[in-house]
């Protein structure tokens, strides 16, 4: 009986201790997924019951995304008019380059198959496919990939790798790394080749950097793309663009073949000399807008600019284009 009593006392001590231990159990260490943006992935050698079945951060952007042209449709689908720089924080150098631009430059062999760069492609008229690359062992997302009809595969690395040397090659997609901020994927892109911020000659330099924020809300993807360009912009240039999930969409192949579109002497690059292209004011005149406004600049993107130009009713009707 004495032995039984002793056993009961031990049992009592054990049972009373269990809840206390449960209270004192330290919070589980951050899961590998939580640290994925900061550290290279590590294999899970042992099964861990504390691995969570929902991502501590982030969402899954995988899918076929259809662009919705409910903003700037005339610019994004048929294309912008010459001399329309409204609401873009360009400097004089960008304006000068744009005003010497000729659309026929697109016929040059070097330009015919040129894809939109990572910053502009969001505004292009192309369907989008997003997929993820997963580490087969840890099952962490190590990269996101985005591909549009007229673009190259774009990788966004999530494994914490550094950006390459400034002397590394620049590409249309640039070099992108991502990290989660709640459910928002924030992406930094460097190493972009020279591109454009609008398809009417407004340039973007290869010194520019791009910050993106991808936001998934229901079946709608909103992407804020912010370009900082010390060469051609006086302020960061932000655009926000919406895509709708479309599981029936198919991004078809786009084999581009260079052909001789225009018979011109070797080395000739279509252009206008500064101050000679009078067509750059046609847009302002047709729409009844002040030429000063259509020349763009940071001032034109802020509401107070309306006080400067006064109450104006536009004469633009796109259907007449």
């Amino acid at each position: 009986m004495s032995l039984t009593r002793t056993s009961l006392l031990f049992a009592l001590a054990g049972v009373l201790t269990i809840p206390l231990l449960a209270q004192q159990t330290p919070a589980p260490a951050a899961s590998p997924v939580q640290g994925r943006a900061a550290q290279p992935s590590q294999s899970l050698v042992e099964y861990d019951d504390d691995v969570q079945r929902a991502a501590p951060n982030g969402v899954d952007f995988t899918g076929e995304w259809a662009p919705r042209f409910h903003e700037d449709e005339p610019e994004r689908v048929p294309g912008p008019e010459l001399g329309d720089y409204l609401g873009i924080p360009i400097n004089d150098a960008a304006r000068m380059r744009a005003m010497t631009w000729e659309a026929s430059i697109q016929t040059l062999p070097e330009w015919q198959c040129r894809p939109h760069s990572a910053d502009y492609i969001w505004r292009g008229p192309s369907p989008l496919r997003i997929w993820k690359e997963v580490d087969p062992v840890s099952r962490e997302v190590t990269a996101w990939h985005a591909e549009w009809l007229r673009s190259v595969d774009r990788s966004i690395y999530m494994d914490g790798r550094p950006h390459p040397s400034p002397n590394a090659p620049h590409t249309w997609a640039g070099f992108s790394t991502g990290k989660w901020e709640g459910d928002v994927l924030t992406i930094k892109t460097t190493h972009l080749k020279e591109g454009y911020v609008r398809r009417n000659g407004l340039p973007r330099s290869d010194a520019a950097t791009l910050t993106e924020h991808w936001m998934l809300r229901g079946d709608v993807l909103t992407v804020a793309a912010i370009i900082t360009d010390p060469v051609y912009l006086t302020e960061p240039f932000i655009r926000t663009t919406d895509y709708e999930l479309d599981p029936h969409q198919w991004v078809p192949p786009y084999p581009c073949q260079v052909v001789e579109e225009v018979d011109r002497p070797r080395g000739v690059v279509p252009h206008s000399l500064p101050g000679t292209n009078n067509a750059v004011t046609d847009f302002a005149n047709r729409c009844g807008l002040p030429v000063e406004a259509t020349r763009g600049g940071a001032e034109t993107m802020y509401p107070d600019f309306r006080a400067k130009i006064g109450a104006i009713t536009s004469k633009c009707i796109a259907a007449q284009r």
Partner: peptide, 18 residues
């Protein structure tokens, strides 16, 4: 930076693009 001509000025009657 978007839809400037429909936001910063009054659009023309009949201009319903987008």
């Amino acid at each position: 930076t978007e839809d400037w001509r429909w936001r910063m000025v009054t659009p023309a009657k009949g201009d319903y693009d987008s």
